[in-house]
Nucleic acid binder design. Structure first.
Lengths: 204, 204
DNA sequence: CGTATGCTCAAACGATCGTTTGAATGGCGA
DNA sequence: TCGCCATTCAAACGATCGTTTGAGCATACG
């Protein structure tokens, strides 16, 4: 049992790295199992299929991420002194902290690829399992921006989401300089993101 | 010769659709040539390889897109009465007009996938062939926002780019309602994007 | 007319893919 | 100790991939 857990986790870790580097189709089970140091058949034995492995890779990270988001939101939700910055921070900071360790950062790229690939089954999986998080945040934004029509609010949240995904997946030209620590760079990123998003959400 | 041009264009058209739907790896030459109504060997005969076909798909659209962007920028560049909105419009509207016809919209998804796939050869190709466009726009933004440090400007342009890519590739939840014409929806998208980007670029 | 050229076609090539199989392995309870 | 059960392993399966081949066909040119 102890070894089987280790095998499963080794597969999940290697999968996260290779999916981020080469995509879901591009990473083969042979590359993946070789990197994990396990037998080729282990994936189908432990997960059933490659597609279910993909689902588990998502589930492992997103469960943790969205739990922390909901916790952060729960502490400020509905309070009279809550600001837009607070809600944005509750949404953004857990994601940035997740991307602190290397494999977490890779997962952000996995997530961005999943969006880009427009895979309907994957989108449905995300919507079914984590859609309530987005709805909860949207409701809180609506409370703090009562002057905005629903349709206008949706537009703005959509554009904020694009900026976040872009920044967190490391697409852009901004890279961490060598003389800035990982922690400091993450804090800079969070502040830029939040200020930018506040401006985009609240402008007249 | 007349038929051969037709064959090449049929392949390019079908490739754009299938690459957007299934990705570069996901779309096979057999699906692609079947959809184009040409023989399987025609791709290697006319383009040399699948990878060179991918490059041609990009070149055909991006040449037109960036020419129009540079034309639009050239008309306002350096003038005293030019606004941030003008520069953003010069950047955004050609892309939205390209995505007017169906295959152009599909190409935007192709482009977004290419970014997400982090393919270094493709990124180098984009940087070599179209990097000057981004530099020109950045220089004009710098002229109009002299109070911003270079580093701060790069951050904001990066986040704007993320929002644009997200919106133009149709990732988000905003879909065109049935009672809104394609043209009207495109205009709404442009205005939301520009107002959002102005707020993000100019906030204190 | 003969031949050269540009293009299309069916067929096959070797490689790689996800998955399955059946035997070997090893620890744990009866 | 014996047998069971979970796990690992090498090997093979059929399918599909990008690419190549060589024959077939048409048009243009000497």
């Amino acid at each position: 049992m102890k070894d089987s857990v280790s095998t499963k986790d080794r597969i999940l870790g290697a999968a996260e790295v290779l999916f981020a580097q080469r995509g879901f189709d591009g990473a083969s089970l042979r590359q993946l199992t070789a990197a994990a140091g396990v037998n080729l058949a282990a994936v189908n034995y432990h997960f059933g299929s490659k597609e279910k492995l993909v689902e588990q890779v998502f589930r492992r990270r997103l469960d943790a991420l969205n739990t922390r988001r909901m916790d952060a939101l729960g502490q400020i939700e509905g309070r009279a002194d809550t600001t837009i910055e607070d809600v944005l921070a509750a949404y953004i900071r857990p994601a940035l902290e997740l991307s602190h360790d290397d494999s977490g950062a890779l997962f952000m790229r996995v997530l961005a690829r999943a969006f880009a690939e427009h895979d309907d089954r994957l989108r449905q999986f995300l919507s079914e399992n984590y859609g309530h998080v987005m709805r909860q945040f949207t409701a809180e934004f609506a409370r703090l921006l009562p002057q905005l029509a629903k349709r206008e609010l949706y537009w703005r949240i959509d554009l904020v989401t694009g900026a976040l995904t872009h920044a967190m997946s490391g697409f852009g030209m901004i890279q961490r300089p060598k003389d800035v620590s990982e922690r400091a760079h993450r804090e800079q990123t969070a502040q830029h993101l939040i200020r930018f998003a506040v401006a985009g959400l609240t402008h007249v």
